[in-house]
């Protein structure tokens, strides 16, 4: 087996006395779409924030063989990790085009950025139509598309998606997931955090189940989707 792109050992995240993540281990191999599912408050988002250096954390995180913990967020982004934050985090008072422009902040290759921008508009025609519009005036689903497109503008080697289905209409959720599958199909490695276990298990290769700050189950997604324990706890059966 090739060495994993991301390998995490004993990751802990605590806010004051509250231990959100209690020492978890997981890996993501290049080209994989891995999901991290679990209920509200299981520590999924904290895990992603820990990976990005947005919250204080301990444990070891290796990205492409290099230790990245205790690095500043901007340095981690420069290594090739990109986060689509929970609640999308778009720049509401900037236009769609300006938002996408910010996504390429760490890059200098103008022709490459231009090509990727064209690609983003191709993938999300809705954003092309609204490129001059203020991002804050987009609908929730369009904002989610923008957040994903913006993260892709940095040409990440690992894309972290935090609850892309949150607060969206079912049809829009389906559309977002089609897009995630398209991006993954192009060979982008993705770590997806999701409450909607059904959807996440359908689209991903492997999955980890998280419960009160610890990983309780892991395995190929197809297998977990049939696991009676998972079905009972997350799929409402």
């Amino acid at each position: 087996m090739t060495s994993p792109l991301l390998s995490v050992h004993g990751l802990k995240v605590a806010y004051g006395g509250i231990h959100a993540v209690r020492g978890i281990d997981f890996e993501v191999t290049k080209g994989e779409l891995v999901c991290l599912i679990g209920a509200n408050g299981a520590g999924k988002s904290s895990t992603l924030k820990g990976l990005m250096g947005l919250v204080p954390h301990s444990g070891s995180i290796h990205f492409d063989g290099e230790r990245v913990q205790h690095a500043a967020t901007h340095a981690i982004v420069a290594r090739g990790l990109a986060l689509v934050p929970e609640g999308r985090g778009i720049f509401g008072r900037l236009t769609v085009a300006e938002n996408l422009d910010m996504g390429a902040y760490i890059r200098n290759d103008k022709p490459g950025i231009k090509a990727d921008l064209a690609r983003a508009y191709e993938l999300f025609p809705r954003l092309a139509e609204r490129r001059a519009q203020l991002a804050g005036t987009l609908s929730g689903g369009e904002q989610q598309m923008l957040a994903i497109a913006r993260a892709m503008m940095g040409r990440p080697r690992l894309l972290l998606l935090d609850e892309p289905s949150m607060g969206l209409a079912p049809l829009m959720v389906r559309k977002i997931y089609e897009t995630i599958a398209t991006i993954a199909g192009e060979g982008v490695t993705i770590l997806l955090v999701e409450q909607n276990a059904n959807l996440a298990l359908k689209v991903s290769h492997r999955a980890y189940v998280m419960e009160s700050g610890a990983i309780t189950l892991s395995g190929p997604s197809a297998q977990l989707a049939n696991d009676p324990q998972v079905r009972a706890a997350y799929l409402g059966e």
Binding site: T73, H74, A78, G89, F91, Y105, I106, G154
Partner: peptide
């Protein structure tokens, strides 16, 4: 542009690779 991003959303700005500090 980086200042504008920080003004809008500091976490997202950091996630764009901006050295917010």
């Amino acid at each position: 542009r980086a200042w504008a991003a920080i003004r809008e959303d500091e976490v997202a700005a950091a996630a764009m690779g901006i050295n917010t500090r």
